[in-house]
Design a protein around this nucleic acid. Structure first.
Lengths: 211, 211
DNA sequence: GTCTATATCTTGATAGAC
DNA sequence: GTCTATCAAGATATAGAC
């Protein structure tokens, strides 16, 4: 939260002064994400990222003073790009689940981005990782959103009152994360979208919502 | 495969000469796993591992000449320890699924080991990671085992012939991996075992195998 | 089997010129 | 905004003594 507003303030300040500066920043972020997707954050060398965009290392550090700043900028950008998911917040259960399948379908064409965030997500489990808090917050928020959608469905009587919304929310996240990992390991042979579709279909059926 | 037999040959050779040498090796492997669980393979410093067992860095390198050797020894040990899972191979579907829950229950008391392998598993997605092949092989094998159990159940007529064994096998692995990740991020608040139990229960019910 | 000392490499970051 | 030059730290690995 604090990082996000700081970041936005920084962007505005620079944006006012130079349009080309913003382009550079965006180029760097794209290159960084690609490197993080291949080597993870800790193992990627910012000197390589600099060379990818035709800069020297100090040239890159002029835009992002430290490696951590670069990482946090990527996470902040992701927060802004997550508007599509936020749009699903408040939908009914069926719509939410179908929406997640749609997001997966779109993600299947953005393997670099998916890979970067899957790697960073796992990496953030490590001790003292600078993205630890961000991924924890994001996971908690997603879980709460899903849980409240399940619970709303119970309250409206559209699904059985015996179900555990929090547990199903966690399971859904687990399935999505797990399917992504399998897909990343073998993108050509594994059908991530079909996998989620099958799971969601069976889940809806078992909740009596299919037809 | 090649690494494993090489490793076993090495162990036999040393084992014949000194029993205390084997103890040292085991100590080092335990310490290494703990470090890898915290920092990952790439980020962990073997000098720290050496200090954990009261050795200097060259002292450790006498037992494992390179860092990669240390990693491969851990993976080879894991292969030997996986006997419990192999015992489930060939069981019927119901027994296999209940067996996986039992393994999860036992794993819930071994968080360091689970964390180490979850971290290494994710890390192995990275480019040129030395454990890449091992984790790919292991995932493929598990998937094949699960799939053939599902397919056997179909052949025996105990479940519907419309089901896709390979897809369900992948889904099961995804759920287990995903639940593990959620648990590792928040071990006190998240019930990994209960999560898998709920999933398996619903899966069996939807296949008409509960009661 | 274990140590001290050292070589070598890589990395993130700074100083200061242009 | 970008560069050259440089630094300081940390890592793996080796040499050689005990």
């Amino acid at each position: 939260m604090a990082e996000l507003s700081e970041q936005k303030a920084g962007e505005e300040k620079r944006g006012r002064r130079s349009r080309k500066g913003e382009t550079r920043r965006a180029e760097i972020l794209t290159a960084a994400m690609r490197r993080f997707a291949e080597d993870g954050y800790q193992n990627a060398a910012i000197a390589d990222i600099a060379r990818d965009v035709g800069l020297s290392l100090p040239g890159l550090l002029h835009h992002f003073p430290t490696k951590v700043d670069l990482l946090l900028a990527i996470l902040a950008k992701r927060d802004l790009d997550s508007a599509d998911f936020i749009g699903l917040h408040g939908s009914d259960l069926r719509r939410l689940l179908k929406g997640m399948v749609a997001i997966f379908r779109r993600n299947a064409d953005m393997i670099e981005v998916v890979r970067a965030f899957a790697i960073l997500n796992a990496e953030s489990l490590m001790k003292d990782h600078p993205a630890k808090a961000w991924f924890l917050d994001r996971a908690t928020e997603m879980q709460d959103n899903f849980a409240s959608t399940f619970e709303r469905a119970v309250a409206e009587g559209s699904i059985d009152s015996g179900i555990d919304g929090k547990a199903l929310a966690a399971e859904l996240i687990a399935v999505m994360d797990g399917l992504q990992m399998l897909w990343l390991r073998d993108p050509d042979r594994f059908d991530m979208v079909g996998g989620l579709e099958a799971y969601v279909g069976r889940l809806l059926a078992s909740l009596g919502l299919e037809g």
